[in-house]
Amino acid sequence: MKVIVDMDRCQDHGQCVFSAPEVFRLDGAGRLEFESAPDDALREAVEEAADVCPLQAITVED
């Protein structure tokens, strides 16, 4: 599974962090960091993270 975040769209709302904390996190300054090739076992959590992104900046590919 490949996770792509359009960083031009991302505005650091952090909603993805709550859905998939293993994959997404905010650094000390509140900026998004993420794992681009997470384990397939996390797929449902990553799909949820993409769903809840207010800017719809997250894409999930096989």
Binding site: D12, G14, V17, F18, L26, G28, A29, G30
Partner: peptide, 9 residues
């Protein structure tokens, strides 16, 4: 105050 968001949630 974006950096405080996870704590308050």
């Amino acid at each position: 105050c974006g950096g405080s968001l996870p704590r308050y949630r």
